[in-house]
């Protein structure tokens, strides 16, 4: 009796198996990242691999000076506005879609599968298709036209799926109550629906921004003659053989963290403000 109870308390092999999977995950995710961050601070005499020959900001310097390693600043000046536009459109369109999909309408099932199919379609093939189509109609491919469309085909399904999850917890009675209290549709949307859904909308915005900023496959054939950041990095890996490439990795990761930090900070601020009014009272 006591024996069997003891063995029941002992951790079984699934614990160690799952533990091993987790350790492997952490090593594969953070190991390479740490290597790249470290090597980006390589000394001026250092190479592309360990050991470090001193510590410097030399390669960051090299990176910023255009010409030597490629047009990173130019790429950033396209990628950031593009990511912001994609973010705004993703939030707006998936909010509207989420509102619409709360009730069944003729063709709602088909429409849903059409949207979701875009997640399954291979991005690179889609990218070639969009490129070809623009060529056929004689439009110039550009980051703010063809690339924007290609990226939205990727971010909108995600945004919509997140919105479904958000609306799953959103009761219609809020809108009915608002209407009951005399609010018109615009007031209901602005004073009730949007504030309640705001944290979820920020999550969608964050998704839209990072998916766009990081998007490669769908952008490769649609961005035209000027590159976005991932494509610029990819083309640098083809011809740059200095730690500048690592410096670039460190910089872009830093930017991603800034975006995530700002978003989470905004969510925390909203919650603090909502609770803060109470703290002031007590």
């Amino acid at each position: 009796m006591a024996q069997s109870k003891l063995s029941a308390d002992r951790r079984g092999w699934p614990f160690y198996a799952l533990g091993a999977v987790f350790v492997a995950y952490v090593v594969f995710l953070y190991g390479p990242m740490v290597c790249i961050y470290l090597l980006s601070f390589q000394g001026p005499q250092g190479g592309l691999s360990f050991p470090m020959r001193g510590v410097s900001l030399h390669w960051f310097d090299q990176l910023i000076e255009q010409g030597d390693t490629g047009d990173l600043m130019g790429a950033l000046s396209r990628s950031i506005p593009l990511a912001l536009i994609v973010m705004a459109l993703t939030v707006l369109i998936s909010l509207a879609g989420g509102l619409a999909f709360r009730s069944r309408f003729p063709g709602s099932g088909t429409l849903f599968y059409l949207v979701i199919a875009s997640l399954v379609a291979p991005g690179y093939v889609l990218s070639i298709g969009i490129g070809l189509m623009f060529q056929m109609f004689g439009f110039e491919t550009n980051w703010y036209t063809s690339a924007l469309g290609a990226q939205l085909s990727w971010t909108l399904p995600f945004g919509l799926l997140i919105m479904f999850a958000i609306f799953g917890r959103f009761s219609r009675s809020y809108e009915e109550a608002s209407r009951d209290l005399g609010a018109n549709q615009l007031q209901t949307m602005w004073l009730v629906v949007v504030p309640i859904l705001l944290p979820g909308m920020i999550a969608v915005a964050l998704f839209g921004f990072t998916l766009s900023y990081d998007e490669f496959a769908r952008t490769l054939q649609t961005t035209g003659s000027t590159n976005t950041v991932p494509i610029e990095i990819w083309s640098m890996t083809q011809n740059v053989t200095s730690p500048s490439i690592y410096a670039l990795g460190t910089l872009t990761t830093g930017l991603s963290f800034v975006v995530i930090g700002v978003s989470l900070g905004a969510i925390a601020l909203i919650q603090r403000r909502r609770l803060g009014s109470v703290a002031g009272q007590e």
Binding site: S173, E176, S178, D180, G182, Q187, P195, L198
Partner: peptide, 24 residues
């Protein structure tokens, strides 16, 4: 109407919930 789950607006405090109809 008073709704079954009350449907109080979660982002507004008591005073703003009550004043909502006057605000709109």
């Amino acid at each position: 109407m008073m709704f079954q789950s009350y449907a109080l607006f979660p982002h507004l405090n008591v005073r703003d919930n009550v004043a909502f109809t006057l605000r709109v």
